[in-house]
């Protein structure tokens, strides 16, 4: 293979590892999102207001059920509502369409023509985005919740450590699912149908509206064969110590399994789509 030695070839000076490229994308994702301060504030405000509404609805539901409902009392039900509100932004519950747009406009060619795997690059940037949104979008609902209804949180350290891991996994599962959804744009001109379907399914089955534990049996069974409970129900269960010990590890393993499966399928589908684009022209 001929090389071009007359150049100050980048190959000769390349010493940094792929980890550095990953980290750079995490930083880039963080900075990209941190430029939208006003949107962050507006989002935090909305999450908090809806948190108030949801907290009182869940407290009402528990009261109507006679004080406890599937292991939730008024305090834990309200805590559930507040934690869900805090997770909306980091876990990207309301979706992400950047890749689909890039496919539709053809900008994905830029991503393909870079010496880095597009899925890895976008995943790293998404971790940066999640890291940014964690405090400014998560803290306000929790602070208001603590002041208004109080939060029923465990006193031990372990649930928080495992919970932090579970939140990271929830972000990863969410990204992997949305990546797969976005790759449909290689074949579909109009994504609105599949996006709506995905959003309805993920919002309900993740436990964002009511806990998965409150679902009727048939619905709980459906939820269990989808990755969606891994987005919200899983981290909230672990942080509130509703699941502990081996059970908590089992939940983490389920999240990890969903992430692995989704990210691999997403890789294959993206490659297939990209090959189609490259072969047929876009």
């Amino acid at each position: 293979m001929p090389t071009f030695p007359s150049q100050a070839a980048p190959a000769s000076g390349r010493t940094r590892s792929p980890i550095a490229a990953f980290t750079a994308h995490v930083v880039m994702g963080f900075r990209r999102w941190s430029t939208y301060r006003l949107a962050t504030a507006a989002g935090a405000f909305t999450n908090t207001v809806f948190g108030l509404i949801k907290a009182y609805i869940t407290i009402g539901a528990v009261g109507a059920a006679g004080g406890t409902l599937m292991g939730y009392d008024a305090a834990t039900a309200a805590t559930y509502a507040w934690l869900v509100q805090a997770l909306i932004a980091p876990v990207n519950i309301f979706g992400w369409q950047e890749l689909a747009l890039r496919i539709r406009t053809g900008d994905v060619a830029i991503d393909l023509a870079r010496p880095i795997d597009p899925q890895v690059a976008f995943l790293a940037a998404d971790l940066g985005r999640a890291a940014y949104s964690l405090i400014p979008r998560g803290a306000p609902p929790l602070l208001v919740g603590a002041a208004v209804t109080g939060l029923a949180l465990p006193g031990a350290v372990l649930p928080y450590l495992l919970g932090a891991l579970s939140v990271v996994l929830a972000v990863l599962v969410s990204f992997a699912g949305l990546w797969l959804l976005n790759t449909a744009a290689f074949w579909l001109l109009d994504m609105r149908g599949v996006i709506t379907l995905y959003m309805v399914a993920s919002n309900i089955l993740s436990g964002m509206i009511v806990p998965v534990h409150w679902f009727p049996d048939w619905m709980a069974r459906i939820a269990q064969v989808t990755p969606f409970p891994s987005l919200v129900q899983a981290p909230v269960d672990i942080v509130t110590a509703r699941v502990e010990g081996a059970a908590a590890l089992g939940v983490l393993a389920t999240q990890l399994a969903w992430f692995t499966a989704l990210v691999l399928v997403g890789r294959v589908v993206f490659r297939t789509g990209a090959r189609r684009l490259v072969v047929q022209g876009g």
Partner: peptide, 29 residues
């Protein structure tokens, strides 16, 4: 490559950040 109609810069970020990321992508010291 520069496609006149497309961009490889990150829209929301200053050039400085785009260059930092691109340098990492190309693994330049």
């Amino acid at each position: 490559v520069v496609f006149g109609q497309r961009t490889q810069l990150w829209w929301d970020l200053p050039l400085r950040e785009s260059y930092r990321t691109l340098a990492a992508i190309h693994r330049l010291p």
